[in-house]
């Protein structure tokens, strides 16, 4: 799907995955959902957001915007597959409080806005706005390292990923 030039570049340096929004990184144990807290889906980080726009953590292609707009998946130019999930149990809001700013199959740049959400609305439904982000295909890579941080924005790197040799 991507050119051999991109592949060649990715062999020589680690792949960076950045925070998908501004906020504070929290401990996974503070995510009120076992699946994310225990990293069942893959290496997981979580952000307590302080603004209402979720951005692309990498440059790549939008694979899926969930029907209910509470999550998206993106595949980076180096084929890292990432899930960004806005809030916990927000599938139950059925799309209310979320606005998609891109379409499936769009090519985006790291930091581009993807989904806007209404944090006050989500909170009014007694749901958490915590944003877990998951690397879905860890086994395709040599190593996936989580980088701890405190205050984050879309320039803060949260994963460093090594391609297989």
């Amino acid at each position: 799907m991507f050119g051999s030039f991109a592949k060649m570049l990715s062999k020589n340096k680690d792949i960076a995955v950045n925070a998908p929004c501004k906020g504070k990184m929290i401990d996974n144990s503070d995510i009120p959902d076992e699946t994310f807290a225990d990293s069942i889906l893959g290496p997981t980080v979580a952000i307590m957001p302080s603004d209402n726009t979720v951005c692309a953590p990498v440059s790549g292609k939008i694979i899926q915007l969930f029907r209910t707009k509470h999550a998206f998946t993106i595949c980076s130019q180096e084929n890292v597959e990432i899930l960004v999930h806005i809030g916990i149990n927000t599938v139950d809001l059925n799309g209310q409080g979320f606005e998609a700013l891109v379409n499936e199959n769009d090519e985006v740049k790291q930091g581009d806005p993807i989904i806007k959400f209404d944090a006050d609305f989500i909170k009014s439904k007694n749901l958490s706005t915590i944003i877990p982000m998951v690397i879905c295909n860890e086994s395709d890579f040599e190593q996936v390292n989580k980088i701890n941080a405190d205050d984050v924005d879309t320039h803060t790197q949260l994963f460093s990923i090594q391609a297989k040799k």
Partner: peptide
């Protein structure tokens, strides 16, 4: 066995 592909099925 590929999470991203299974989610993309978006089965209702």
């Amino acid at each position: 066995k590929r999470l991203i592909a299974v989610m993309k099925l978006a089965l209702a």
